[in-house]
Amino acid sequence: MNNEKRRDNRHIGKYISQLYRKGSVFINKEVSKYGISSGQFMFLLEVYIQDGRNQEEISEKLKIDKGTTARALKKLEEQGFITRVKDEYDKRSNKVYLTDKAKEIRENVFDVLRDWNHMISQSLTEEEEEAMDKLLEKVCNNINI
């Protein structure tokens, strides 16, 4: 009974929420010097990973709706980090490209990601870190809302 009761009182979402909030604070603090917010951070990372990807692919990869993606990319474009170009084969689609300004800070942005990953995993063994990564991926892949 004690195990059942303890299990009922565990709220995994509470910890996920805390990680999200703490991550946003950390990332905002670190990338604000470049004029980027945590809300734009992950979109810029996706373009770093594959320059020239279209907006819809970015939305699908991040599991974020198209409107939110369009707004985040518009802000990155206004700030001079990306350019959006109509796809020559599909005029309804925009391809997203890095500007020189974004390329100049690429390593700094990836350093922020590495620092955050280090912070959240520093108390874990390598095996625990791998298990956490696999479990979180499994949970995310299982939720389709």
Rank of each mutant, 00 (worst) to 15 (best):
R6A: 15
R6S: 13
R6V: 11
R7S: 09
D8C: 11
N9L: 14
N9W: 07
N9P: 01
G13F: 03
G13D: 08
G13T: 00
Y15C: 10
I16A: 14
S17T: 10
S17N: 14
L19T: 10
K22G: 09
K22A: 09
G23E: 05
S24C: 12
V25Y: 13
N28Y: 04
N28T: 03
K29Q: 14
K29A: 14
S32D: 13
Y34W: 06
G35D: 04
I36R: 01
I36V: 06
S37G: 05
S37V: 04
S37A: 10
S38L: 01
S38K: 09
G39K: 12
G39V: 08
G39T: 05
F41H: 01
M42R: 07
L44F: 01
E46P: 00
E46A: 03
E46K: 07
V47S: 05
I49Q: 15
Q50L: 15
D51P: 12
D51V: 02
D51A: 04
G52D: 07
G52N: 08
R53D: 10
R53F: 00
R53G: 05
E56Q: 12
I58D: 00
I58A: 04
S59R: 02
K61E: 08
K61V: 09
L62M: 13
K63M: 02
K63F: 05
K63D: 07
D65Y: 01
D65C: 04
D65M: 01
T68A: 13
T68Y: 07
T68V: 11
T68D: 05
T69S: 11
T69F: 00
A70T: 15
L73D: 09
K74T: 08
K74L: 11
K74E: 04
K75E: 08
L76F: 07
E78L: 12
E78I: 06
E78A: 09
Q79N: 11
G80W: 03
G80C: 05
T83G: 06
K86I: 11
K86H: 01
K86G: 07
D87M: 05
Y89F: 13
D90V: 00
R92N: 15
R92W: 03
S93G: 00
N94D: 10
K95F: 04
L98G: 13
L98A: 07
K101H: 02
A102D: 03
K103E: 06
E104T: 03
R106M: 14
R106P: 14
R106H: 14
E107M: 02
N108A: 05
V109Y: 06
V109M: 15
F110P: 00
F110M: 14
D111P: 02
D111F: 02
D111K: 15
V112R: 07
L113F: 04
L113S: 07
R114I: 06
D115F: 06
W116F: 14
N117T: 03
N117P: 00
H118A: 15
M119G: 02
I120N: 11
S121E: 12
S121K: 13
S121T: 15
Q122S: 15
Q122E: 15
Q122R: 14
S123C: 02
L124N: 13
E126C: 00
E127P: 07
E127D: 12
A131V: 09
A131F: 12
M132N: 12
M132Q: 08
L135N: 07
L136Y: 06
K138I: 00
V139S: 10
V139R: 06
N141M: 08
N141A: 12
I143R: 11
I143S: 08
I143P: 12
N144M: 12
I145D: 07
I145V: 12
I145Q: 06
